[in-house]
Design a protein around this nucleic acid. Structure first.
Lengths: 250, 250
DNA sequence: TCAATAGTGTCTTTTAGACATTATATG
DNA sequence: CATATAATGTCTAAAAGACACTATTGA
């Protein structure tokens, strides 16, 4: 199977590009969606916050590069994180230092993700990234390269994935309650959902969650103990957990 | 904004990769889904059929490379084709001649796509690619590189896109009938749909299609003339055109 | 006339969402 | 006891799907 194939005979005209992987690692903590960002180096004037990214090594898969970027730049090791390729950004000029084609990943991890304190990385509230009144930090300065666009695309991808897949459980550690799962949906979608209808829908979707015998103790303000659950075997949800969408006319 | 940024300081360890774009151009003709494939060169022993692909040039966007691959390898010019990035394939060893990171595109074009007869490209029935009894051609030999996987992914993406977006109309030239639109869904999904319910659903989805005053003459076997339509302004469909899915238990 | 295709009407089932009710905890 | 949260029940509206029926053509 070392056959040579057609359609690759145009090598001479083209220089190789640098290939990088950038990762948007997201978590839900305290009901807020957060993304991992790397602080700019103080020694570099004009540098801005960026997603952790690394160039691809010779004998490394793209997934491996994503994990290495998280480990080397943030000290974060999330082998269990759900990695999903987002898309590839390759416009000439997106990196001022030359042509860099970047494969962006969306990574979802169960809370909490604690960046290595010796590294200059932080989990940043996604909602505040669009805050025009931010006094300082990534929201005020904007993100490096086209990483603002990548974060937007990652957010939209995550929102869509919650509808049709069981990906929301990737934000949670087992066991979890239905209320915790609902908090994930509310944080990612930025809406509030009816607890009763949400719970019924989750439980009526085959393979989404599996109820356990145990219950979780109620919070300090009381309330009935909640049934604990683990992830079900389903990857795709049927029926889907659809967001409200405003219909449009023509 | 020519600021230098953090997290790109690991250049020394990494060789640049070759970056290519491969395109899965799909059409629906005669009720069958087809994909554009390039014939192997007879002079190269063991070469197999492949998707049209080109390496990315220095000052070219990835989308431009996709269009160039179609033009140079198949003589196909489809500026109106809907181009959508599929995903990026970058495993070491996917190309026997060295590390090539390939950005795959899904392209949908209105029928018919006629490859330049001086080029060795053909529209191949996607369904027959999995036929184990094929005497010769791409189905018998398999596709080059990981292009079989790319075609599978492209097919699944197209199927999913028909549910939630108005992409099906990209397979049709305006004006078109509801029956022609239904034929697209049936070809891509590989199912048969109830004409009455399908038509009602399409017309009740705001912005999907816009009915015209004109009608199309019936076929040779007669029948009531069908109302002609053009594409509506909607990109996302609400409600969606959901496929039947077999529920799964846990 | 019949056959074929387009389009409408009707009925049933399923699902979503609003919201009341019951269950079980804390203070 | 009141209050908070979990879980269930009930009602309505929307949508999907099965399928009968009408409309308009060709043969």
């Amino acid at each position: 199977m070392t056959a040579r194939e057609p359609d690759r005979a145009d090598d001479a005209a083209i220089a190789s590009c640098a290939v990088a992987v950038d990762v948007a690692l997201m978590t839900v903590e305290d009901g807020r969606l957060r993304v991992l960002l790397v602080e700019p180096e103080a020694a570099v004037p004009g540098a801005r916050w960026a997603l952790p990214g690394r160039r691809v090594r010779e004998d490394e898969t793209l997934d491996d590069t994503a994990h290495r970027a998280l480990a080397e730049l943030a000290g974060v090791h999330v082998p269990s994180a759900v990695l999903e390729q987002l898309r590839t950004y390759g416009d000439p000029g997106r990196d001022p230092r030359g042509r860099v084609v970047s494969v962006a990943y969306l990574a979802l991890s169960a809370t909490p993700v604690v960046p290595d304190p010796t590294r200059t990385a932080r989990m940043v509230d996604v909602a505040t990234l669009d805050d025009p009144d931010a006094p300082e930090g990534p929201a005020a300065e904007g993100l490096a390269y086209d990483h603002g666009r990548i974060v937007s695309d990652a957010l939209e991808r995550a929102r869509a994935r919650l509808e049709y897949t069981a990906l929301a459980t990737a934000f949670l550690t087992e066991p979890f309650t239905i209320a915790e799962l609902r908090a994930v949906y509310e944080a990612v979608w930025g809406v509030s959902l009816d607890p009763a209808n949400f719970a019924r829908k989750v439980r009526s979707t085959p393979g989404f969650v599996v109820p356990l015998e145990e219950t979780a103790p109620p919070g300090p303000s009381g309330g009935r103990p909640a049934t604990l659950n683990r992830r079900g075997s389903a990857t795709l949800l049927h029926p889907a957990m659809l967001r409200e969408r405003t219909a449009r006319s023509d």
